[in-house]
Write a protein that binds this DNA or RNA. Structure first.
Lengths: 301, 301
DNA sequence: CGTGACGATGTAGCGTTGCTGCATGGATGC
DNA sequence: GCATCCATGCAGCAACGCTACATCGTCACG
């Protein structure tokens, strides 16, 4: 029973297909298919079943993939056991973050890590839909993800560890000459009939605006759907609508005001997502520690 | 980090050398040496150190070998997870037992297992010194071993599981025409100055006779050292001395009497020894269950 | 104190494994 | 019904891991 093959099976499960798994593992679909076939012959139970033109794990396959998590954890723990005998943790850690989270956290994280000899950070910004954050953990060591404050958790199951970093309030962004700009706070009722700039459906915090609308009594009038907060800011600045912007991330252009929203729970939670096996790596734990400390700094600032 | 290489390292540790490990793994010493060297390069810490012409694990090596246990366990658990989806457990299980234990347990175990479709038992009798039973677990799935009743446990550490099977009293074997033969029980004092037939030094239950001697006040006079109980029986029968024989195992030739010994704790414990990873295998667990049930039958008979 | 034996470890050579590239077959959607 | 996408089988090739042999160091014995 090859640990590598188990890892492959697991990836086929999480990525939902041979081709996707192959991309993550830097292999050809053929290689992945062969590994799974070999594993299947070894255990004597069908592990995958065709569904349409795709492929899904059978219950046996799921069980094996589940067990594969523990194998991966044990292997990483073994490596960590040796690293304890090295003076300092070393290696490269791949960190991904959604755009605004990257802007908020990655620069400071990099300076913190730079001070530590031997750790190399490979950063990426990944803007994916809410449901796709978990799948990123196959490619990345640490995935900084966000979700609505009221939302449920992440659907990674036992295989991914969720580390809460901070809660960031969402404020109402209005042009500096807008009637609401001088207010110290606004309530949902104040926002009725305003033109909204929202994020695209399915993306994190898309649901928050809906909650605000429900609280105000009428569905918000969405005039644009823009994911990049800088573009949003530019649009708000030019008077094309109002929006919800995360408080800490917002750069603070003078021509856009952020007004706290009260009377409704408007915020996002920023979490670090990582596979349990990756979490065993000493360097990863070190980076994660820095990330948590950094989040605390921001939260208490 | 290759699970196979970890297994190899572990075997080098338990077997105490490259050559011995190679024999167990059915490899050449060169292959074992290369695997360890590769592992060492990967982790960047020395795992082995020369001691004399031999070789021992460094602390880092010990730590890694320890962690390797969990890897092996996780792998076997993965296999077991699939086997759950097969109707019946199947596979071959290698069982070893010391001579008299084999005689006592293996025939009945085989008949029990024969009733189960798909399980094949490969039995061996292995007469080794007390300290060498644990090392057998590398080659065998289940090792039936024995130790003095008062002795300490087994020195396998976290890696081997010890399953107690039964306690067998050691009786005094005398010729049928010996003065003690008509007694219903004897005390240590009664045994003073008798000629003893003992097992070779270092072999299990060798220490028991010493305890009996200590209790009687004078060291026993050992005239022969014979390991095989049948030979012992023949010697006793011919009047060449008395001995201690296990009660259940003793065939009961009419010309030799077993007399219970009171006033001193004379017995041996029969345990099943197996590596924790092997213990995860479904078939192994099944065989072990039968073995335990069998032992209970004997104990209560 | 030299000699023989044993044990670990390099090196050369070879077989096997596992990969890529391409072709095929099945299922979907426009 | 055709184009597309996906999984899979097959041929070829590279790389890995094994064996066999040689070497070096250490220990026992004369």
């Amino acid at each position: 029973m090859d640990a590598r093959a188990l890892e492959t099976l697991r990836t086929v499960g999480t990525q939902g297909g041979v081709t996707a798994a192959a991309a993550v593992l830097h292999l050809t679909p053929s290689a992945v298919s062969q590994q799974v076939a070999l594993l299947q012959r070894e255990v004597g139970v069908p592990l995958t079943g065709r569904v349409g033109r795709g492929l899904r794990l059978t219950p046996a396959g799921e069980a094996l993939a589940e067990a594969a998590v523990d194998v991966a954890v044990a292997l990483e723990r073994a490596r960590a056991a040796c690293d304890e005998f090295l003076e300092r943790p070393q290696g490269v850690v791949r960190v991904s973050a959604f755009q605004s989270g990257a802007q908020l956290l990655l620069p400071a994280l990099l300076t913190r890590i730079e001070a530590i000899e031997g750790i190399t950070l490979e950063c990426t910004d990944e803007d994916v839909a809410q449901d796709d954050f978990v799948a990123l953990t196959d490619r990345m060591d640490v995935v900084v993800a966000h979700r609505p404050d009221d939302g449920l958790g992440w659907a990674g199951g036992r295989a991914v560890r969720v580390v809460p970093l901070l809660r960031e309030p969402l404020d109402v962004a209005v042009p500096h000459d807008h009637p609401l700009a001088r207010r110290t706070e606004v309530r949902p009722e104040d926002l009725r009939d305003l033109p909204w700039i929202a994020v695209r459906e399915g993306f994190p915090v898309a649901t928050v605006l809906g909650a605000v609308g429900a609280r105000s009594g009428s569905a918000p009038r969405i005039v644009h759907r823009v994911n990049d907060f800088h573009v949003v800011e530019a649009l708000v600045e030019a008077g094309h609508g109002v929006s919800l912007l995360p408080r800490y991330t917002f750069g603070g252009g003078a021509r856009v005001r952020l007004v706290p929203l009260v009377g409704v729970r408007a915020g996002r939670r920023i979490d670090a997502l990582l596979r349990r096996d990756r979490a065993e790596r000493l360097v990863v734990r070190r980076v994660l520690d820095e990330l948590r400390a950094l989040a605390v700094d921001i939260d208490t600032a």
